[in-house]
Amino acid sequence: MRISATVAAVSGALVLSAFAVPAAQAAGSDAGSYRSDVAKIREAAHTASGKATLSGSTVATPADDEPYALNVTFSNIKVHSGKPIVVGAAAHVSVPVTYTLTHGADVDITASDFLNGPYIYKGTFANPTNMLFGDNAGTCTATSATTASCKATLDIYPGDGDLSNTDAGAWKAGAEAIALNGQDPTSSTFDITKVGLADQGGFASPNVTRLSKLTVNAAPEPVKKGKTITVTGKLTRANWDANNYTGYSTQPVKLQFRKKNATTYTTVKTIKTSSTGALKTTVKATVDGYFRYSFAGTSTTPAVNATGDYVDVK
């Protein structure tokens, strides 16, 4: 979901802009779905201000067009148990999140129109270049009169344009809460000033990475002892701009060997991928066993091992 609006802006038109959804997803959502609801709120907030475009241009609005500050804070946000978020070229990825919600005694978090949920963002909290949310609001269980333990999921759709290749790497986490207080965003009488909003960022998030794939082929098979074996392969990773997999160039990759009936691989040599991600090297045949390529990973691309290719040495 591509977002260019300034999330920290306090105008009624922009403060909810982080909840924008792709048109196709919004149209396909159920009437009560989280993304659909918050998208309607954003539309209503825009109409209420009448001073900002839906593209996210920053325009000052009067204070009486703002939601009020909701007495809610977030803590202990844990995205994907701290593990890197690995996203392929097109398939939907669901990411679990847990967090703690603390609220004032005047906030009813059990109300049917109280919404809250986490998100992750690329860039700064004041000026994110991209944000990713869940399809549904978080669910919370009260642990005291003013605290609750919550869980939710982030839903990522690379095939729908949620990510570009430049998004790979470091992200931050945040969370938002909205109290509609009986207001209907689709109504002509909707009053944005009666809606409460809390938005908090700067939490740690694991990296969002491009799913990697690695192949290997050792030939000829079988081979006479002492003869040359040529080992080829290719390292590719998800291309979010084109929704396919393309070669990962000039990356160090280990050629490893495991003897027949052994349990561990030993590194034979390290080579680099070509400009297209291709791998090719030679070794001498000694004993029966499996060859594989092994990539250690980077901040934008996870580690991956090729499935071992067996060579019968005569």
Rank of each mutant, 00 (worst) to 15 (best):
G247R: 08
H46I: 14
L279G: 01
A179V: 05
S112R: 12
A204N: 13
R35Y: 07
S57N: 15
T267H: 12
G182Q: 00
S249Y: 10
N116C: 13
N243W: 04
A90S: 15
P185R: 03
Y245H: 13
G169R: 08
T141E: 13
P302Q: 01
F203K: 01
G32T: 12
R2M: 01
L70I: 05
V87Y: 03
T307M: 09
K224Y: 06
D108S: 13
V93S: 14
K284N: 09
V15K: 13
T143L: 03
G123Y: 01
L197M: 06
L279M: 01
T193I: 02
D312A: 14
V93N: 12
S275C: 06
V86Q: 06
S17Y: 06
R42I: 04
T273W: 02
Y119C: 08
A179Q: 07
G161S: 06
K151I: 07
R35I: 06
G202S: 04
G297R: 07
G182V: 05
L235R: 09
P128M: 00
L154F: 11
N165Y: 11
K259F: 08
D241E: 10
T189G: 11
A52R: 04
A126F: 13
V79D: 04
G174Y: 03
I120M: 07
V7K: 07
T139I: 13
G28K: 02
R258I: 05
K280R: 11
F291E: 03
R258N: 01
H103C: 10
S11Y: 11
W240I: 01
D30L: 12
D288T: 02
G308H: 10
I271R: 04
G12S: 02
L279C: 00
T146L: 13
T147C: 05
G247D: 04
G123S: 07
D155Q: 07
V107T: 08
T153F: 11
V253C: 04
T143M: 07
A91W: 05
W171L: 00
L255W: 04
G277H: 07
G12D: 06
K78I: 12
G159K: 00
K213V: 11
T100K: 14
Q256M: 08
A142G: 12
V313H: 09
G12V: 02
L255T: 07
T6V: 09
A198N: 04
T300E: 09
A13P: 03
T282V: 10
T230R: 14
A18K: 12
L197T: 03
A152H: 11
A126W: 12
S274E: 09
D37S: 15
A173P: 01
D160R: 07
T146K: 15
